[in-house]
Design a protein around this nucleic acid. Structure first.
Lengths: 403, 403
DNA sequence: GACACCCCGGTAAGCGCTTACCGCTTGCCG
DNA sequence: CGGCAAGCGGTAAGCGCTTACCGGGGTGTC
């Protein structure tokens, strides 16, 4: 093996600049082994990426036709003569030509790129937090993105993902910049306020996820109300729990609010007790869930029979905190989540939760965006996807996981 | 058993077409409340995204200057007169102008986009697999991408992520297409073979992750050898285990091979026994790990004292399978992983593993790519990042998690 | 007071691609 | 065998931006 190896031992390295050892040796057998054909305006530099990619002019020249013909062949317009087509195709193959994205985008006014804006989760700025580097890793939004990417691919789109820091001075600006690199925007919850969305929606197609629709934007979400209703009834009627509390997500999260309201309604109509919500405020993270429980138990507050969490992450934190205090789940307290993220199954106490069709959420959002990009007017500005109750151990059901 | 209660059964929906709830109610106050300012070439369409975004010409007109001046102000060239600058800036602010990415890219020959190629993990095509929808969700590569995105952002780049299906007819083609939408490519392991990489590297800067360098591409990886050495010594000397086996990742994975070799070397020099590798072939997934164990136990093979897995995912599957067979970890058999993905901590038996600086891996890879895009010749074509041994319960150490 | 110089704004030439438009060729029909 | 239509290739005009180049007016200098 001839490649020089650098062990980056000084691991305290400022992450910005990689500590590349200054070897400076230019790899030996790096003759610009230009295979054939291409005569492109090569610039004989000794750098790693050697040749400029061929342009449509190179292809035209190689095939002995005009650039228009090349373009037509490539785009299947106007049915060129077979001979022409073959010549072009061969030249294309020889040169490995692929049209430049920017040039094409400029010309057809379509970039085939969807921008995705996600809230910055890489909270390295709170290293104290026990869960910092894990919960904040990848979960719900990432799975949505998977769905988005999948759907996008089917349409020949790629997705450009940008995380914005919540306390950024100018989320709108950075967002708009992303917008101008794409044909439309998919905005995750809680990164932009309604005004900004409104404003953005004026310039580009915008679809929000798990938020609320504005006059110019479309929203895609799960059926929180139905999901929570199912869960609540299960706890209230199947298990007969009479005291329940809810650990919310972010205070202004539409999802969290909708879930709470559905829960409250069911609890009320069952004549059970819903503990006051004030000190039960989480933030969608495991750390938040654990904090709530720790606070409560430190103050020797009585726990309800069941704790309903705004999402699975929160529930994970809750389970963790309860365990540390020796509270048994589900025997002493039942705990439930929402989302059904993958980890939910690996917990010591497998988590009862409400499954959202997360990937489908993303896929749907993309499809809606796609239609907007094509200047169609979507049928609905508030698209709702169904949910499924998943009973596992943490609510008191027998189950391991049968699936 | 009452598990997995399905409630909201209504949608067998094909994922392609979103089931738009036919609400049909067009919200009352939906007047295209055009507030002020913008006069842009409005096209009075009734669609959702109304106005074409302003161009540099609009700004120039509004500010009463030429487009060149606008561009200069925006790009900080040639220090324009304060008055000019102010006029332009104000017009920009009023119109909310942001330059079109494609046009800018075409002009400066820089897209400020890095392409990331990842192997398609959304294996919905193997629904039999117990772990299908979870392991194949998001883990190691996703975290790398986080690091990439983070570093990219610092340089004003965005990342374009493309998953390619392994058994795709033409990964090279789809990949090249991505390449022409970006300035350079970051290629995860096992999506392209060396020839394709070589070929690609001729046209655009390419950095591979956890692979091997080629004459035209640079590789970034963790120090597998050192990490595995530490782990092996811990098992051999601190715990005194004498029989060990290794469950590999994909057979041709450079990471897996390097880990195996380091392990083998340590085992040999300690005079312990490394069980034959043949039937211990995994595939980096939990399903693969579980399968190995199940096969073994079905055939009543004796287990070694310690099972070293190529990665955490595999270890998760192994733990799961062992548990089902009533084998106690770590009392009967010790199990270890590699990577230290977040879940590793949430397992019933917390996983001893080797931590890679996953995000840093991505960040470094981007920085290398960035330098290549700037036509610098990287100092090293094989960049190696350090690793850390993380002892938890599954190897036989006392711990919960000390961190 | 004239000349050289500098500063800054405008004009215009691309960047690589698509496509409207034009005109030549060929085929067909009368 | 002539005329017309259809088919196909080429030419050129952008898409929205950056920037080299040019030219006009204000300064500095003998």
């Amino acid at each position: 093996m001839d490649a020089e190896t650098t062990v980056n031992a000084d691991s305290t390295a400022r992450p910005a600049v990689p500590a590349l050892a200054p070897t400076g040796l230019t790899p030996a057998g790096l003759a610009p082994a230009e295979p054939a054909a291409a005569d492109g305006a090569g610039d004989g530099s000794g750098a790693l990426a050697v040749t400029q990619p061929p342009t449509i002019y190179d292809v035209a020249r190689a095939a002995g036709v005009s650039i228009a013909s090349v373009s037509r062949v490539l785009n299947g317009r106007r049915n060129p003569r077979p001979e022409t087509r073959d010549r072009v195709l061969q030249a294309v193959a020889e040169l490995g030509f692929v049209p430049d994205g920017a040039a094409r985008a400029l010309s057809v006014r379509l970039k085939e790129v969807a921008g995705v804006i996600i809230r910055l989760p890489w909270t390295s700025r709170n290293p104290e937090d026990l869960f910092a580097d894990e919960e904040d890793s990848l979960q719900f939004p990432d799975m949505i993105n998977r769905g988005v990417a999948e759907a996008a691919q089917r349409r020949g789109f790629d997705i450009l993902v940008r995380s914005v820091d919540l306390d950024e001075h100018d989320p709108g600006g950075r967002t708009l910049a992303l917008a101008r690199k794409s044909d439309g925007l998919l905005v995750h919850d809680r990164v932009l306020d309604p005004d900004q969305l409104e404003w953005l929606g004026r310039q580009v197609p915008v679809v929000t996820l798990a938020a609320v629709a504005t006059p110019l934007t479309v929203n895609v979400r799960s059926d929180n109300a139905a999901g929570m209703r199912d869960l609540a009834r299960h706890l209230l009627h199947d298990h007969g729990y009479r005291t329940i509390s809810y650990i919310g997500g972010h205070i202004d999260s539409p999802d969290s609010i909708a879930r709470f309201e559905a829960l409250a309604a069911e609890v009320a109509s069952a004549g059970a007790t819903l503990l006051d919500r004030a000190c039960w405020q989480g933030d969608y993270t495991a750390g938040g869930g654990a904090r709530v429980i720790n606070n409560l138990l430190d103050r020797r507050t009585d726990l309800p029979r069941a704790i309903v969490c705004a999402n699975d992450q929160t529930a994970i934190g809750v389970l963790y905190a309860l365990e540390r205090h020796g509270v048994r789940v589900p025997d002493d307290v039942a705990v439930t989540g929402f989302d059904d993220i993958p980890v939910a199954r690996h917990l010591q106490t497998q988590l009862t939760t409400v499954r959202q069709r997360i990937r489908e959420l993303g896929a749907t959002a993309f499809e809606v965006l796609y239609s907007m990009i094509n200047r169609e007017t979507p049928a609905s500005r508030d698209v709702v996807l169904p949910t499924t109750l998943i009973c596992r151990r943490s609510c008191g059901c027998a189950g391991g996981d049968p699936s």
